[in-house]
Design a protein around this nucleic acid. Sequence first.
DNA 1: AATGCTGTATGACTTTTATCATTGTTTACT
DNA 2: AGTAAACAATGATAAAAGTCATACAGCATT
Lengths: 237, 237
Amino acid sequence: MGNKNFTAPACETCTSRHTSIFADLDGGELVRFSFQKGCNLYKSGNTIFNEGSYPSGLYCIHKGKVKIFKNGTEGKEQILRFAKEGDILGYKSLLSDQPFSASAAALDEAVICFIPKKSYFDVLQTNPKLSLKMMQLLTQELKTAETRIVELAQKPVRERLAETILILKETFGFEEDGKTIAISLTREEIANIVGTATESVIRLLSEFKKDGIIDLKGRSISILDNRELVRTANIDD
Amino acid sequence: MGNKNFTAPACETCTSRHTSIFADLDGGELVRFSFQKGCNLYKSGNTIFNEGSYPSGLYCIHKGKVKIFKNGTEGKEQILRFAKEGDILGYKSLLSDQPFSASAAALDEAVICFIPKKSYFDVLQTNPKLSLKMMQLLTQELKTAETRIVELAQKPVRERLAETILILKETFGFEEDGKTIAISLTREEIANIVGTATESVIRLLSEFKKDGIIDLKGRSISILDNRELVRTANIDD
DNA sequence: AATGCTGTATGACTTTTATCATTGTTTACT
DNA sequence: AGTAAACAATGATAAAAGTCATACAGCATT
């Protein structure tokens, strides 16, 4: 795929050292990871792993943005979630020793470390705190997925799109201007999150713009009226 | 709620002794569970726990059928999944120490044991095999949830209803006649699985019947042409 | 047997959403 | 910078699904 091998940054001094799932590991464990892991540079669009293939380790995002997606009916991509700096990928398949149930691809230039299966399980087996953290990560994701199910089952496209914009804001934050969401997605990709047709996304985004809720410049979306966007999303809870 | 306290059946001799998540526990651990747990009889329709309240232990179904659901937009119920004999409930909230993210209710007369939080965590902490099994249960559910997301996002109601019937068959099996699905749900409940309006379920079920795919007698659904039902469901994979 | 309740069925209609076709615009590449 | 390819926008139309209204069936209660 033309992914360059990349000098692995040390785990001990990683930007995500204290925020990632590995925050509780001791120095020795981290040094071992640093020693045993590999690292790759992915260009925007490049595949990190593919649905159906088998995992041989854990991916940890050092830098960059990633989409995780499944191929649904007639090959239509469904984006399940996003991951960024400090997030780990592939742990679900690794834990259950099954092929990847989804694919992952870089959304920009990404630097991603790879911790071999054995290294990971060695630490997992000797560190009960990590086990619990993993379980909590899984339960969190499950909860998010269940909320998503309810929304897809019950909410109209308009509300789902509004909520998607809010989620993108939460996940990636703003540019320096404090209003432009720091992620570049095609209309088709947005449709593949929301679960609708590309044309519907285009039409509704135009409406939101006309109503002064957002602004559009090429692929970038700015939030002008957050309150109204939240109202449009019709969040339950 | 009028749930009767029920003489707790012993875990060591439970029907699900070798199939449940606790299959790997040793005799001593099971005897402790038997000693520390409680047990209740729930009548059809009774609530087991409610979204938003806090868990104080783990539920384990000794006998009966249960629906797990969330309250979505304007109180509309969304059924997330079903559980039956040998399945456990509430572990997600227990693990992450958060309020229940969904409710559970009995679909028939159900006998459900209750293992106190402490008893459960004591075993979890000393038994790494159980940790791994819990994680695998979570990953399995997450995988199912993700598949569900793709289907809700991409498949029409007709296909989702056909698939729902197949899932009900897989989950609850047939009556003695070998074709009638052994679960009694209202049309509204089916709609709350599929994510559609009650009338749409009624109409489509009538169509399926007219096409000779299923038969309907009151609330019970019989599968007449499984092949055609699978075709109608348009399963991806 | 009459009463009411809850759930099922069906028709008429509206709204939402998808699809198809066409044109214009941006992006990415050499 | 020029060019092909990918993407975005918009209108016309069709299909899917939801809503509303009404009627009917089944069942439990009195």
